[in-house]
Write a protein that binds this DNA or RNA. Structure first.
Lengths: 350, 350
DNA sequence: CTGAAAGCGCTTACAG
DNA sequence: CTGAAAGCGCTTACAG
């Protein structure tokens, strides 16, 4: 690039001083006009607004943040973008932050170098807080944040960090609902397919499942737990092979998967490779209720998470802690609901 | 909150002055140590690093940005999170920005109030640039950005804005590949199902499709174009009903959908409600190659976009323009590939 | 290579 | 309500 673009200087942003000059007031007056709740006379405000408008003035949030020693940036830490559940939580999160004048700084914990460093980097932006979504690796860093009075809230990642709030779905109850639903449908040889990464939520779902199974106390119920070798669709495929490639009387007739994605893979193999009907021969329950769960090919019965509720609660907790950093840790558990579906579209093709 | 948490002052971040004091050097020396390419003696650097480490110092990027009159924040503007194609582009985008020391500020163009304002807000953060993904509403604002020397690049959203770069897939070629594939499979009554929102890429895909169809010049080929009433799975469902609910000899036998998601809905209805086999009775080609396209239930033939390539190119263009804002507009078109699949898993169930 | 000083654009007591 | 002044934490010519 030999083009000398910066010859005429870098972009010249208009500053509060420019506006003050044009409006014939002090810089303080300009600042007050743009500070909610500051005292400016109607007259001054109007002069300032007119000048600002004419000049195309925008307050420099960075400068403001420096003065206030905190930005309105909030780190959203995700663990890759592969999970189809992510967009469902990201959307309300972004919207909720926006509503409160906060801006999301997106960070992938799975970046090349290590995670610790990533999270520490967020600190350089003087983020007003951080929201860690499910799958994010364990962090002792939460402690560092806490010490610096930078609020942290974790979604679906219950842990016991001092001064860190958690917001999650009632995974146990979800597991229980799945068990009850399968048993009610007549299934007696149950299985739970968990994701490979030993997540808190995955374990809870399994625990709730077992517990409810025992409580119902139906006669002749057997149970097995397996862990998929991958957290995605393919994981469901291989899990299905392990579960179904055996004499018919030993095959499970009711499977609960810790995510819808796993359940898709499992259903496809059950139908395609083993010729089973779902839910006829094999009842399947997923978890999350992602958009594809309603697709005709699956019409999947699943446990729905209240993504909007999770996001709103998470942001609310974050904001509360921004105002009172030393609040004791809080753990919110949001209800989940069973969504029963039954394939219509594929009825004739099944 | 009656808790007076801020009694002991807000979080006390350690500053360059603190580090300087401990290291026995000037603040300039500290600054230079953390400025890539600045001249500091090895000895000074070590003293500074030791002090910084001990104190847990992190340079305040906000302050740095203010000095440099530009942040390393880059706005990523999306239009909702509903499209299953989004995560595929978001992942490499975030990773690529990170690699270059830039941080993504996520913004949803579909927020409550108007879009113009959203984009203007980004300016308050003195973003180093903005990346607009597909679906983002038209913006004359691009011009405002351009005037302020804030680079803008649009992904899959070719438009003719001065000083704005565009990066997109070869949609025309994708449409052509789809047509060739369908014709080669023996289809003669073709249809193209576009998304309702009149996006550039959707039109291009259709144009390429028609063009190739004409060029191949197979005998007795008919064609119809319909627009789904929604951009998602449900849109595919209703489009399928419109296309298939007619005497068999008038039904299309080859359909190209402008997204995989539409194609899923179409396939499910074709199989489930009309008892057709895919690709036997009806050949279907999608676009994007999102993860679910490989699911056994669909095993969908589709046109793959090079999401990583798009992201890398977009960030590269952005960075180039950060260095030379007045570069003429550039439009990159990245190749797409046909991915042919055929249901195996469902073979026995079909 | 190094330090003192000026300045980035803003907000906020402090007097009036 | 209003303005002058100090200061947020940093970088960057400018002299040495």
């Amino acid at each position: 690039m030999t083009v000398d673009d910066t010859a005429n200087g870098p972009s010249h942003w208009v500053t509060a001083a420019d506006v003050a000059r044009r409006a014939g007031v002090s810089r303080s007056a300009v600042s007050r006009t743009f500070t909610p709740g500051a005292s400016v006379s109607q007259e001054t405000r109007e002069k300032v607004m007119a000048a600002a408008e004419a000049l195309g003035y925008r307050v420099n949030i960075l400068a403001r943040s420096m003065i206030q020693r905190q930005s309105n940036l909030v780190g959203i830490v995700v663990s890759g973008f592969a999970s189809p559940f992510l967009p469902g939580i990201l959307a309300p999160l972004v919207s909720e932050l926006d509503r409160r004048g906060l801006a999301p700084l997106l960070m992938d914990a799975r970046r090349a170098d290590n995670v610790e460093e990533s999270l520490r980097d967020l600190l350089s932006y003087r983020v007003a807080g951080a929201i860690l979504t499910s799958g994010t690796p364990p962090i002792e860093l939460a402690e560092e944040y806490s010490r610096l009075h930078v609020p942290v809230v974790m979604i679906n990642r219950i842990g016991d960090f001092e001064g860190v709030d958690t917001v999650g779905s009632d995974n146990r109850r979800g597991g229980a609902l799945a068990a009850e639903c399968l048993l009610a449908s007549g299934a007696r040889r149950l299985a739970y397919v968990n994701r490979p990464t030993g997540t808190h939520s995955g374990r809870e779902r399994g625990a709730g499942f077992c517990e409810a199974m025992a409580l119902v106390g139906a006669a002749g119920v057997s149970f097995e737990l397996i862990e998929a070798d991958r957290p995605d669709y393919e994981g469901g495929v291989t899990a299905a092979r392990r579960l179904l490639d055996r004499p018919a009387n030993l095959r499970p007739d009711g499977v609960f998967c810790s995510t819808d994605e796993l359940a898709f893979g499992l259903m496809d193999v059950a139908r395609g490779a083993f010729g089973l009907t779902v839910p006829g021969d094999l009842a399947v329950v997923g978890f999350d209720d992602i958009p594809m769960a309603r697709a005709g090919a699956y019409a999947m019965t699943t446990i729905r998470q209240d993504t909007t509720g999770l996001a709103q609660r998470a942001v609310a907790r974050l904001v509360e802690r921004m105002e009172a950093p030393s609040l004791p840790s809080r753990a919110d558990v949001l209800p989940v609901t069973l969504v029963e579906r039954r394939s219509h579209l594929l009825a004739s093709a099944g």
